[in-house]
Amino acid sequence: MNKNKIYPWYFMAGALLVYFILFFLPGLLGVGYSFTDWSAYSTELNFVGLDNFRTIFSANENYTKIISNTLVFTLVTTVIKNVLGLALAVLLTKSVRFLNLHRSIVFMPSVLSTLIIGMLFKSILDAKSGLLNTALRACGLGFLAQKWLVSTEYAFGSVMAVDIWRGTGYIMTILIAGILSISTDYYEAAEIDGAGGIQKFRYITLPLILPTLATTTVLNIIYGLKVFDMVYALTNGGPGKATTEVLYTAVFKRFGTGQYAVGTALSSVMFVIMIFVGYFMIRLMTRNEVIE
């Protein structure tokens, strides 16, 4: 049988066309535009070489801070979400009352809009009348109350904390699926040999869940580097000079002020890095697939 006839190319055409024109092409064009002085103020387009990249990587601009913020955000949220998610996954695969209810509740923040979560936490974390500080004061822990979102000291930590709150349930859900796919034979054999709970985790669960942990790490990194919603809704980069600014809030601001060339250069740095890093990440994700 002629496979090209039974499975014709035009079945792929729709997906490839839409994806190429509205997703990949802007990425490519963006790389090109980053070598120009494209802006909202002039209709002319001049080649400026590496000027935009010099701006981005020069020390006297905030961009290095923005890039390091993005990396710190990615690292911290990835590690904590994985650790907390794994702990919860282990807990919620044991005999706990209302097991499914717990799983559903912890996962729920992942289906709500980030923008809405941001608005709610703006109220919860309000310094004066927010729920968190009010509760702390009511418990006699008033000294712990902070200006969570408006002080340069705590703002970035608060943003990461809210993001961890939102994303842990998702990671947990994936890890639960990973733990449940481990054969119970291993645990039974270990029990006969007299292994305790910690030993079972260390020598059975952990090694067998490593591939799943690798995937959740990849997903977290992809998410963290591209984060926009959460920061936009909570602090929009503030307070002060770029305290919580990340790559994509910075791109959005350049877009708003008409500095298209710098915005597209910032975006392109990520685009080029992700083409290479992403290739390995995707290889990792597709490795479980059946290949004929």
Binding site: A15, F23, G27
Partner: peptide, 20 residues
């Protein structure tokens, strides 16, 4: 691979505005 790579790639909204 090319299509699925899009899972990791960021969208360049600035250049996308030009395309749109």
């Amino acid at each position: 691979m090319f299509l699925v790579l899009g899972i990791t790639l960021p969208i360049n909204y600035v250049a996308l505005s030009k395309v749109l």
